[in-house]
Amino acid sequence: MTDRSLLRAIGWYRAPVIAVGLLASLLFFVPFLVVVATSWTSGSFILFPPTGFSLQWYETVLTDRQWLNSFWLSIVVAVIATAAAVVLGTLGALGLTRVRSRALQRWVRTLFIAPIALPPIAYAVGLWSVDRQLPFLDDTLVSLVLGETLLAVPYVFALVSSALAGGDPSLRPAASTLGASWPMILWRIELPPLLPSILGGTLFAFTVVFDEVVLSVLLLPPGTQTLPLKMFTASQEAFSPELTAASTMVSLLAIVVLGGAQLVSNRRNRAARLRRKASA
């Protein structure tokens, strides 16, 4: 399991490298733990260390229509945008393998990754300007969903595309000499091995969309808020333990769902490896 060659190459630098890595991991752990800790305060201010222990703020959040509505709105937006991004990103990755010209291939690839580099606020202003020009979009979620989809496409594309690159390039010609039409090749030969990557891309895209706040700032119809936007405004207006309680809950939900998915896929991979080893 441990990599002897790399260990030997690193030599005695291993200890300091690990030490720095562990210190860096505090950058990830500590803020999260502080958020969690302050959420169970029994006082009415966010304080660290928390005073007392109570779950009253969780109760407040869970019975507050505003928090719940914004949570569901986020779910709806994320589900639609993720579904669209998964389809578009997967099609793009598959389509790219059919492009013959190397130069064109590079441009298409660049285009599909580009939204990662797009500054969200500037893009949001663009979508907002579209809404101003087309007033019938004004009170809808169309531009928000469209924008979130665009921001999510690169993640799906990147994952599926790299899975495709690792596959056997002769499967497609093989299937075509065996008489399969291109839709059948796509459906029966190419897609099945990609499913794990597509699922990974789906989860990634979903978290990206669910957490995205900048587009919501400008694009939501008045009176509606996604969860991150609700958090954002709450942090600027009323910095109360409600906020950290909500943060904790949504983070734990994400950890349970994504961690569960990770665990399942790890187990499947390991099982597949063991089966292969057993029969070899």
Binding site: S25, F28, F29, V30, P31, F32, L33, V34, V35, T38, I46, F48, T207, F210, D211, V213, P228, M231, F232, S235, F239, L243, T244, S247, V250, S251, A254, I255, L258, G259, Q262
Partner: peptide
Amino acid sequence: ALLLSLWTSIMVRTFGWMLL
């Protein structure tokens, strides 16, 4: 730690830094 950071929202992580 890496996954925790990837999976929790930027808002939440930023709140954590504010509180710190």
